[in-house]
Design a protein around this nucleic acid. Structure first.
Lengths: 144, 144
DNA sequence: CAACGGGATTAGAACGATTCTAAACTATGA
DNA sequence: TCATAGTTTAGAATCGTTCTAATCCCGTTG
């Protein structure tokens, strides 16, 4: 069976809508558009600005404020994960599972490293009154 | 032999001056003051603002711009190391050796973990054309 | 199917951290 | 002591992000 472009788009929208509903988020036009872009392909890393540019280039009108709101809501809903590798920009990762990253600072590029690949041993017990939330590993790389 | 406060201060200044000269930095009043504060005790973690507050509280006049300049110059000279754990503020660490960190986000607090303590195994080879610069481990903790 | 109510979106202002600018200052070598 | 190149500075500018308050629209109800 061959699908027309229109049919594919409709399916994407339906899938995004379902995903949003499931996460307890009202499927507004903007959220559906953003979710479609974010979850169309497998693993993606975006910043608020890169996503805003992308959605704008696609001819869709979404304000930057909404992109920020949406990224945070998706993160809270467990659809995204925030990655902290740069002290001046926030990255969001569509891969919410256990994994780590290569980070090429000069180009702001993130590359996933599967969770099983890296083993961190010897993490000491945190000082009294503190509990480990999670262990992040960032492998900083440069062009060579 | 007992030292007066004035004598101790003089020694600190001399030490800071020597350290700056050795790093190829002209020992200006401001740089000497900041170096004295930073390297007085062993390991410290500061932000530009916390250091500016500290130096101001000590009754010394240094502009915030100079604090920023100095932190970056010290980092470039290898006297400090920048720690990236927060996407909205930069931290600087007087411990430039191999080590990792606990980070208590709610209070912006960093705690060193000695380098030998944690072992990271299984870091994959980076994609072609890229070389590993360094591997950062951040153990994010919360009050419990 | 129209009306309603509360969540969602928006433009633009506000914000905090950081960097820039251009003028005044100062450490250093001659 | 002087000249000069490097430093410092106040204040403006910039950047990413958040806030505000008005408008909009999704889903429910009558």
């Amino acid at each position: 069976m061959v699908k027309t472009l229109r049919e594919s788009a409709k399916e994407m929208t339906a899938a995004a809508t379902a995903r949003l509903r499931h996460a307890g988020l009202r499927p507004t036009r903007q959220r559906v558009e953003l979710a479609s872009l974010l979850f169309k392909t497998c693993d993606r890393h975006v910043t608020a600005e890169s996503l805003h540019d992308e959605v704008s280039d696609a001819g869709v009108k979404v304000s930057l404020a909404t992109v920020y709101n949406t990224l945070h809501q998706f993160t809270q809903a467990g659809l995204l994960r925030q990655v902290i590798v740069d002290s001046s920009r926030s990255y969001f990762d569509t891969n919410t599972g256990d994994h780590q990253h290569f980070f090429l600072e000069s180009e702001g590029m993130l590359i996933d490293i599967p969770g099983e690949t890296i083993a961190v041993a010897g993490v000491p017990a945190p000082p009294p009154g503190l509990a480990v939330d999670r262990v992040d590993v960032v492998v900083r790389v440069r062009r060579s």
